[in-house]
Structure formats: structure tokens, C-alpha cells
Nucleic acid binder design. Structure first.
Lengths: 347, 347
DNA sequence: TCCTCGCATTGAAACGTTTGAAAGGTCATG
DNA sequence: CATGACCTTTCAAACGTTTCAATGCGAGGA
């Protein structure tokens, strides 16, 4: 299909293409970067030469000279949580529109990996960094910003205004979830979530408490069951503690700080022979794909995950290209998706 | 903490560090790359200068000159399937050991995105590419190999031996699943899976048929229910078809080509008021985290996902560094994990 | 004192691109 | 015929590193 010359092992460069097409090296570059200033005939000749030699532009050289990279990066917090992949998907779409590559890294909740990744990304001179950090106020983030690299914090709200962030209103999310349960007639509700070092957990709990108080229900009847992490296993463990409560203190509904907890709780509850929602109604948070697909489809608070990613990407691009960019904290509105796990009791 | 000079906006280069430390530019490079040939005093002086200026090595320049990059890439097939993230995790660990960065891309099952990604990665001159391709025999893969870039196909087996691959023995997996069901006394079993263009699906079915025949059961009693994709939704749909079969033809167990299908089937079955495993036993494939966490914990065929990723990374590194590398097709052994969804009936 | 050896440092040439100034060439105009 | 305007193409200087041959230097041996 192509008569490729070996060039004694080297991969072909613009110089080789130029020689093959009988033009200067600058013209080859023009064909790639400013084709409108090259005559049709020359352009075609050069393009054919590229094809025949199997030329692939050396991005390092391009970037070194041009001073600008064509990649964005997302440092995600937890690769095992589907939530972050939907966010990544949104970022990817925005990146695709802007004709940029997306470099996905995973810190796995370890500050140390996060720092390694940030360092590498700075070395790569990426156009911008999106990150869901282990700690929203980590010094490493300021370091990146200080170097002038656009950075946007995703799904967390840093206390300083040193960079942009996008997040979802978690207090509102908590209100929506518990309002829904109150409306369904529940008057004893458990909140599952922890550790409290995670801002989201606190805010969702805060929202829950607000609406609870506003509805005139006694504070003691909203029970906080702390968990050590937001995982399926912790959800199961919390379910056991719940089942162990004396009947008069046992809640009729649970609001979980995320869907993984909710799925664990659901599993434990059904496994113990209780029915959902008759014996225990459950609300999750995030509305991951598996929430709808659970054996009892899960009511959950949906966050606009893709939109979150997309907005973050747009902010980072604005910071990269717009000289009068101003940092902003974007907030999205969550939405309750009611399913069987909180279905209204008939009769 | 550091008295950083602005250098009128430029980010500092080795040259600046050299000036600040009062040494030549070559010495600075030596401090970074061959510290043993720099005297302790000089080294310390240079390191202090780096810190003070906030020097960050320009990776493009390094790579251009050195001709070697420090990154591996994984092009994953489907970001919504947790299976691939576990594979990615394994790759990441191996990359970490080799002190390389991992660049994760997602083709989302689209050939066109896959090609864009491969092209970009070749431009970046990554050290090697790991990929779970949309089609294991895509021309784009040969193109990469022809350019001399190490490439390893993950979880698929290409028919040509033009590159390495790692996969799991899917025929064996199919045998294990169905053997388990036969042992549990089932004599009418459904196989859910499709489309047949996916090699895995065919091989798992083949394994199922082999053991079925070897056990002397009539071929007609192993029923193939084709699905259009390996998703939760398709699993639900197949469940409805299953429920619609006349009682005498209805199987007592189902073997699903992956866990997403199995979860969908489980959901549909339980939702329709049937019990698992009493009315229908279910075996999935992949043993993703959500399998164990389902309302009825799912029996599944576990693939050594992390190990798969790790092995693939090692192969690609071998090809990149070992001159007498030979392509090989590594095969891993799957393992059945029995859970409640196929529990033995009491009495 | 002169030579040699070994070590630490320097200098300059690459790596493959982009870019803007300069140089050809063609053509219409004065 | 000379001039200038325009369009296309060439030229050469960057970009920030790494690398390796060359240099300088102090010590040890003759």
C-alpha cells in the first residue's frame, strides 16, 4: 500500500518529507499548520510524501518550539467509583470539541500519588489540570496555580479563591433527599455517611438536618450512623448496626451519603429478609448506573456528572486562553430521582 | 518560603538555574541525570537554586533530546465497565514500579475515537501502548506495530501474531460456569450473551457447550439467548424473554456472558417476584465489585484483572527494552467464585 | 620540575519542530 | 522598462534539554 523507505531505522522527520517532496522544510511545516498559505499543487505533493513515508509529527518538538501543549489532564480521586468516570466522560467531550487530548490519572485517594501526578503534569506543561483532590486545600494545588497553570477543582469547593471550582449544591441535595422521605411519611430517618473529613458528607447531612428541623420533627429522630468510608462494604456494616437497634429506635428510612453505601445497605437489608421499601426505605446519592439497576431500583439524588466535567473543562480552557479570566466557583443543582426503594406504601 | 524571581514571566530553565548556582548548564543537567558525577558541594548548590527558582524540568525538551519518553498509555474499551478499571489499575501499578506515567484514554467502543487516540499517542512517542481494541484485528494496530512502537492487546486475542497479547482462557471460563451449574443439578440452562462479533462471547459459549456435551446432556437443553450488547439493560430484556418461555422449556439456571447482563437479569427476575436461586440460578462473568454487592450476591467467573494489566505492562516494557524480545500470547486461568445466586437447594 | 592520571566541569552540537523575516517570481501599472 | 504589490517558498534562528568530547585542575610518581 505504501513504498516505505527505511531511512536506516529512523522515523521520518519533516526534513525527510521535504526532501521527498522536493520542497523546503518550512513548507512542510506550513502544510501542517497554515495550509491556506501553500499552493494546492505543493500541498498535495507534500501530503503524498507524508503518506508514503508514514510521517508522524513529533509532538515533543512541536510543543517545545510552539510553547503550547494540546493536552488537558484530569486527576481523579477514586477509580473504583463510577461517578468519577462520568465526570471524566464530560471532560473528554469538552476536550474533544476543543481538539485536545485528555490525560486521565488516578490518585486512588493517596496524597502521595496525587503529588507525583501533579509533578509529572507540570513537567509535561499540560494546558490545564482538572482535579478532584484528596484534600481541597492541599498546598500542591496552590503550587500549580502559582506556576500559572490553569487548574480547576472538580466536585470539591476549596476555601481559598485561588482557582476555579465546580461543584454540586450538596446542602440542597441533602434537603431534597430528606424532604422526599418526610413526604412519604417517614418520621424516623437514619443518615449513613462518613468520615466527616469529607466536605460532601457534612453538607449532605447539614441539608438533611435543615429540612428536618423546618418540618418540625424532633432532632433526635434523625439519626447519624457514621461510616468509615463511602463503600459498599461500609454500607453493609451500617446495615447490621441498623438492624441491631431496638425496634422503637429503629428508623423506617435511610438516606445514604452515596450510592455505594446505599447498595451495601440494600444488600444487607434484603439478605436479612427485610423488604425494601416496606420495612426500610432507602435513598442514595449520585445516581450511578448501578443505582437504577439494583435488585430494588434505588431512589437517588442525581448530580449532573457529565455537565460537571464539561463545565470544569470550559473553565480551565477559559483560564488558558482568556487573558481577563476571573476565577469562579460554579455550583450545579442536584435532582431527586424517585424509584422503587422509596415507593409509596399502598393502603 | 522561597524568594522566587519572576524572570519576567518566563518559567525558569536549566540556564537560569545554572546562572543562579554559578555553574554551567551541563552541570545542572548532570545533577538531574547523573548525580554521582557531580561533587557534593556543587550538587547541593544546584539543588538549592532549583528549589529557589521553582524549576520544573521541561519534559518535551528532555524527550526531544533524549529520544525516549517516560509514559505508557492504555486505550480502554468501555469506561462504564468496572472491569477495565481494574485492568488499568494493574497497569498503573506496573508503570509505577518502572517509574513511568500512565496515560489512560477511552475509546468508548468507537473505532473512530480509538484511531484518534492511537494517532495522538504515536505523536507523543509514548514508550508503549496497551489497548483493548474495538476489533482485535484492526489495521490501526498493525500500523502502530509497524512503526516500531511496542503494543500489547489486552483481554483480546488477535489472530495475527504481530504483537503480544494477554487474555484469559474464556473457553475454560465457560466450562467452569456450566460445570458448576450441572453439579448443582441443573439440566436446562440458558446462555445469555451477544453480539457474536465479540470473541469472548463465542468462546464462553463454546466452553459451555463442550462441558454440556461431555456430561451427556442433550444439546437442545442448553439454550442460547442472544443479546445485542453486554449491558444491564440487555440483561433485563433477556430476563423478560426468559420469563415468557413456556414452563417446560424454561431453564432453571442462566449463565451470563458478563456481570452487567447478570445484574440486569437478576433485577428483572427478582422484580417479577421470582426467587434467586430457587426459581432461577444465575452465574455471571468478570466478578466485578458489584457482583458480590448485588442484592443476591452473584456467583461469577473471576478473571485476574489486575494481574492481566500488570502482565500486559510487563510485556510492553520487555518489548521496549529487550532487544531480543519475542511476541507472546499470555493466557490466564479464570476461577469460579460461588455465591448465593447458585446456592445449593436445601432438601 | 615535569608528566601523567583521574576527576569535575564546561562547551557546543544535536534533537525535530515552528515562525517571522527575507527572497523569488509573476503581473499589473506608470 | 522600471516599480511596486502580491503570493509562494526558503532561510535561519529559536525552543530547553542531553550528551560527549574537550578542558582544567590538583595530586602522585619519576
Amino acid at each position: 500500500m505504501s513504498s516505505r523507505q527505511p531511512l536506516n531505522g529512523r522515523t521520518p522527520s519533516v526534513k525527510d518529507v521535504a526532501a521527498a517532496a522536493g520542497v523546503s522544510l518550512g513548507t512542510v511545516s506550513n502544510v501542517m499548520n497554515r495550509p491556506e498559505m501553500v499552493s494546492a499543487g505543493t500541498r498535495e505533493r507534500v501530503e503524498r510524501a507524508m503518506l508514503e513515508l508514514g510521517f508522524v509529527r513529533n509532538e515533543s518538538a512541536r510543543q517545545l518550539r510552539a510553547g503550547t501543549s494540546r493536552t488537558l489532564a484530569y486527576v481523579m480521586l477514586d477509580g473504583t467509583n463510577p461517578f468519577f468516570h462520568d465526570v471524566a466522560q464530560g471532560i473528554e467531550l469538552a476536550a474533544e470539541d476543543a481538539d485536545l487530548s485528555l490525560f486521565i490519572c488516578n490518585s486512588n485517594g493517596r496524597t502521595e500519588r496525587e503529588e507525583v501526578h501533579l509533578d509529572r503534569l507540570m513537567q509535561q506543561r499540560v494546558q490545564g489540570i482538572l482535579i478532584t483532590p484528596v484534600h481541597p486545600d492541599a498546598a500542591a494545588l496552590d503550587e500549580v496555580a502559582r506556576r500559572g497553570i490553569p487548574i480547576v477543582v472538580v466536585d470539591r469547593t476549596p476555601s481559598s479563591g485561588a482557582f476555579c471550582s465546580v461543584a454540586v449544591d450538596d446542602v440542597l441535595g441533602g434537603r431534597l433527599a430528606v424532604e422526599h422521605l418526610i413526604e412519604r411519611g417517614h418520621t424516623r430517618v437514619a443518615f449513613l455517611g462518613g468520615p466527616e473529613s469529607i466536605g460532601q458528607v457534612c453538607e449532605r447531612l447539614q441539608g438533611a438536618r435543615e429540612i428536618w428541623a423546618e418540618s418540625g420533627l424532633p432532632a433526635d429522630d434523625l439519626i447519624h450512623l457514621p461510616t468509615a468510608a463511602l463503600t459498599v462494604g461500609e454500607g453493609r456494616a451500617a446495615g447490621e448496626r441498623l438492624a441491631g437497634l431496638p425496634a422503637r429506635r429503629r428508623p423506617t428510612a435511610a438516606f445514604c451519603a452515596n450510592d455505594l453505601l446505599a447498595l451495601g445497605l440494600l444488600q444487607q437489608t434484603v439478605g436479612a429478609g427485610q423488604r425494601v421499601p416496606e420495612d426500610l426505605a432507602i435513598v442514595g446519592y449520585d445516581d450511578i448506573e448501578f443505582a437504577a439497576a439494583a435488585a430494588v431500583p434505588l431512589t437517588s439524588v442525581r448530580q449532573p456528572r457529565q455537565e460537571l466535567g464539561r463545565a470544569a473543562a470550559q473553565l480551565v480552557l477559559d483560564e488558558a486562553t482568556n487573558p481577563q479570566h476571573e476565577h469562579q466557583q460554579a455550583t450545579f443543582i442536584p435532582e431527586l430521582v424517585a424509584r422503587v426503594s422509596t415507593a409509596r406504601q399502598v393502603g
